[in-house]
Amino acid sequence: MTASADADSPNGTRSVRERLIDAAEACLRAKGIRATTVSEIAEAAGVSRGWLYRHYPDKASLLGAAIVRLNNAFWTESNQILSGCDGFEEQLAVGVRLGRSAYDSPGALVMQLRRDEPEEFAACAGAGVQGLVPDLGLFWRPYLEAARDRGEIHADTELDEAAEWVARVEISLGTVPGETLDPDDHEAVLRFMQRYVLPGLRVAPPHR
């Protein structure tokens, strides 16, 4: 393959970087981080290993770029879905479903990788996207703020603390089996939010 064939194209075709990230995502989906090799990515992208290294110095930096794109896709997709929900309690219930769909949604692959290969994920993604609870807390904070402004939760709710608590609830409901709640039953999850989670957010927080 010649350099001209490998060069980034400005005329509508996907650039080498885009093709490499596409190939990296496909390999991550099929094999995970540990089992993916640079040679496989280069072959899938239709470039030589030497040309791959012109764009990314090592496997970690290439997979890191793919993970960042996946991460952005997950939050964008989730925001679009939750923005169409009617009220905060519905958003909370749908959030559990989004977490449960990690194996089905391309954007949510990053959640699966973070859970299944945490050390490899941290090495590739870097400190910026490796913390699941902080990420989810930041994601839920604007929804809590909007719920507070609409009067759905208490006006004095400490948003950062509440966002972390909501993140932990969502993770627990989506991943830890229980005996009284089916996390795949949307109506049951909604009732759980109405009975237990929302009341905790509607009372005045205690003074420290």
Results as ranks from 00 to 15, higher is better:
E119A: 08
D182P: 03
P177R: 05
P177Q: 00
C124P: 15
G200T: 03
Q194R: 14
T37G: 01
T76K: 12
A66K: 01
L201Q: 12
G50F: 03
D58A: 14
R17M: 03
C124D: 13
G50V: 11
P142L: 13
D104N: 08
G131P: 02
L62P: 02
R54D: 10
D156S: 08
D149C: 01
V133D: 05
T76C: 07
A73L: 03
R141V: 10
Q91F: 00
S9V: 15
G64T: 07
A66N: 00
D135W: 04
M111I: 12
R14I: 01
V197M: 08
R150M: 11
G174Q: 02
M1N: 08
E119C: 00
A147I: 06
E145V: 11
L173H: 01
A108D: 01
L28C: 00
C27N: 01
V176F: 02
S101M: 14
R141E: 15
I21H: 06
L109I: 02
V169K: 01
D58R: 11
P106K: 06
M1Q: 09
G107R: 08
W140Y: 15
V197R: 00
Y143I: 00
Y196V: 04
L98K: 07
A45T: 07
V110H: 13
L92P: 10
G50C: 02
E158Y: 07
P199Q: 05
N71W: 06
P206S: 14
D182R: 06
R168G: 02
A35M: 11
T13R: 15
K59G: 11
P106L: 04
G178F: 01
L92G: 13
P183S: 05
L70W: 12
L201Y: 10
R29Y: 00
Y143W: 12
E187A: 15
E179S: 14
R168V: 02
I81L: 15
G126T: 12
D86L: 03
R14D: 08
A162P: 13
R34L: 11
E25M: 13
L198A: 12
D6L: 14
Q130S: 12
V68Q: 14
R54H: 13
S9K: 15
Q80D: 13
G87D: 05
G32E: 02
V94N: 05
V203S: 13
A122W: 05
A30E: 10
P134W: 12
A102F: 14
E40N: 09
A125W: 15
Y56T: 09
R14G: 06
D184V: 06
E187P: 03
A23E: 04
I171H: 09
A66C: 03
G84Y: 04
V47Y: 09
R54Q: 11
K31V: 03
D22C: 09
H207C: 12
E152K: 04
V133A: 09
R97L: 09
V169M: 11
W140H: 14
G99E: 00
G107N: 09
T13E: 13
G50A: 14
A45E: 04
G174F: 03
R19L: 09
R97P: 00
R14A: 15
F139N: 15
K31M: 03
H154K: 06
